[in-house]
Amino acid sequence: MTADFLLTLAQAIVNGLLTGMVYGLMALGLSVIFGVMRIVNFAHGEMMVVGMYLAWMGFEYLQVSPMLSLPVIAAIFFAAGYVLQRGLISPFIGRPEHQQFLLLLAVAILLVNASLAIAGPDSRGVQMESQFDSYELGPLVFDAVRLHAALAAIAIALLLWLFFTRTRTGKSIRAAADNNLAALVVGLDVRRLYAVTFGVGAACVGAAGALMITIIPVSPFLAVEYTLLAFVIVIVGGLGSMTGALLGGLLIGVSEAVAGLLLQPSLKSMFSFGLLILVLLLRPQGLLGKGPQ
């Protein structure tokens, strides 16, 4: 009985960790954008949903597996994010929060309803052969799709880490994030760096969408939930911290899975929001964040 329960619990934790990696990747996009530009991307969940739809379309119409279309989707998102930041968001950096909020809200409304207009309100999922494969490690079962998605998310996070620590552009972005003025003084092209940052953040969430569609079907109405989920994750992990976003993703993934097991599944988001409130009050900079300022 207890052994059985412990096994179920361990299995839930495994599933939570695997999904949590994808959550983490999604939140990473939000965190990178905020960390550098101090802009909260209120359209993040909508971008996620668009990423999921693109992967679904690739699968449905071109028979390309989401794992393979992922690089293409990430590239499209990078370009779109770059252009969006250059054309629309750039003038709003440093403006009052409510103006940024309204701008991104408008973007969110456009994205989600464009998805609705193109793909309709029904929920869409991909049916791959690997859907029912699994790996076993002792008594624990690893769903193949979840495991692949988690591994891909880890790989992308590593790439991102390399980008920010090894490339010139990545290092410059970090410099600009730490000190905008100094970056201007030493002659960095802050406008371009910001656009690249938004592109990178968008690519993260696009890639996360491509991975997520292998785990769960998509519908336009999920967008708000993903936005909220991303907020919870980055606040818990620390807004602006990359490792924090990944850690937050794992934490929320596990807490959702465990709460779904112990309580009613529909109560699991209450759990996440409770956690969010606690973190905001006790440690507003998040577990790994540097502080609200």
Binding site: F231, S266, S269, G274, L280, L281, P292
Partner: peptide
Amino acid sequence: RFSLAGVYFALLTIAFAEFTRVAFDH
């Protein structure tokens, strides 16, 4: 009290509304 400002305060208000939404669901 915990001097949450701007975005952080906004997120706290969202969290309370969402928390209550799920509570009322049940």
